[in-house]
């Protein structure tokens, strides 16, 4: 990273890439999964760089270097603080996992990171091939019907251990979780549970979900800004936003309207055909709420929404 930033991207060659692969492997050996993943992304981006790279390609590599640099710096500060205080037990901090820690549910409970009797409705589900982390992730987003918080479940299946780990699938029932354990984080926290009861979701549950949606795009974007400004944040903020209509521009891209506000719709890697699917039903849904990811586009300096599902009074339409 230091080399790339000092000498520039032009200095990276095949020999350098091999060296970086060795470093990435060492990060894995020391069980530093997040820095290793970022390192792998840098190596991939550098290997794929074209003969005459444009700003997007070079900026992507620089952004990854910055992310890695920030991760290293924050991790160093975290470890230094731990050494100084002598407190070795994990605490409510995302760095614990990024530095290779594996949370036990009992640890989360001890730290008070749990809720009781939480009613959850799944808003979307996708199977994601996380090449950088060498694993498949069965990712579900859930809405807490009481508080309106949006949580995330991740069933991680490393490539090497795939045949030993059961895959998960989409869920349509209402789940009442006895003890819901929350991983450290802010927006869209990862959750897990062991015991729950399921009930057939009814129209009152969908109406309840709708009542928890943001009533304006600006409110949702404000939440997203707060989250995405952090260097180590996820690439998007998952939000539920009410809409009045979804219309389409001449070039085919969708625009979601909420009162006077508008936002462009775009696809993302996790839901590559969602916009096409939404276009097929947009004419038939008169209002509801779109659940999706708010992404910040650094080239265009603006936010777009990638839809994952549509919540109506009668159902949740998966895209």
């Amino acid at each position: 990273m230091h080399d790339i930033l000092t000498n520039g991207i032009g200095s990276v060659n095949k020999a350098a890439c091999q060296q970086y692969k060795g470093l990435a492997k060492q990060l894995g050996d020391y069980y530093l999964p997040e820095p290793q993943a970022i390192m792998n992304e840098i190596i991939q981006a550098v290997s794929n760089i074209s003969e005459e790279p444009d700003d997007r390609e070079t900026n992507n590599i620089i952004a990854l270097c910055v992310r890695l640099g920030s991760a290293v710096k924050k991790s160093r500060d975290y470890i230094d603080a731990k050494l100084e205080s002598g407190e070795v037990l994990p605490e409510d901090n995302i760095l614990y996992e990024e530095m290779g820690g594996v949370w036990k549910l009992s640890q989360l409970k001890e730290l008070g990171l749990f809720r009781e009797n939480t009613a959850l409705l799944q808003l979307s589900f996708a199977r994601i091939d996380d090449v950088m982390h060498q694993s498949f992730v069965d990712e579900g987003y859930w809405l807490d019907l009481d508080t309106g918080d949006i949580f995330r479940t991740d069933n991680i299946r490393p490539y090497k251990a795939m045949k030993y780990i059961r895959t998960e699938d989409a869920k349509f029932d209402l789940y009442v979780v006895q003890e819901l354990y929350l991983y450290p984080g802010s927006l869209n926290r990862r959750v897990r549970w062991e015991v729950s009861e399921s009930f057939t979701a009814e129209e009152k549950d969908y109406r309840q979900a709708l009542s928890k949606a943001e009533t304006s795009i600006s409110a949702a974007v404000k939440k997203a800004k707060n989250e995405l400004k952090n260097t180590l944040s996820r690439p998007y903020a998952a939000v539920l936003i009410r809409f009045d209509s979804i219309e389409y521009a001449a070039d085919g891209h969708g625009v979601m309207k909420c009162g006077e506000e508008t936002i462009a719709l775009s696809d993302c890697r996790e839901y590559p055909d969602a916009c096409k699917t939404l276009k097929l039903i947009a004419g038939g849904i008169g209002g509801g709420a779109v659940f999706g990811g708010l992404f910040y586009n650094a080239q265009e300096h603006r936010f777009t929404l990638s839809p994952f599902s549509v919540v109506t009074e009668k159902d949740i339409i998966r895209l």
Partner: peptide, 19 residues
């Protein structure tokens, strides 16, 4: 980058039509 995110806009002024 953090400042850029906070400065980000979202409005889309394209002419649109319903489907």
């Amino acid at each position: 980058d953090a400042l850029a995110v906070t400065q980000g806009t979202f409005a889309d002024g394209s002419e649109t039509a319903p489907v």
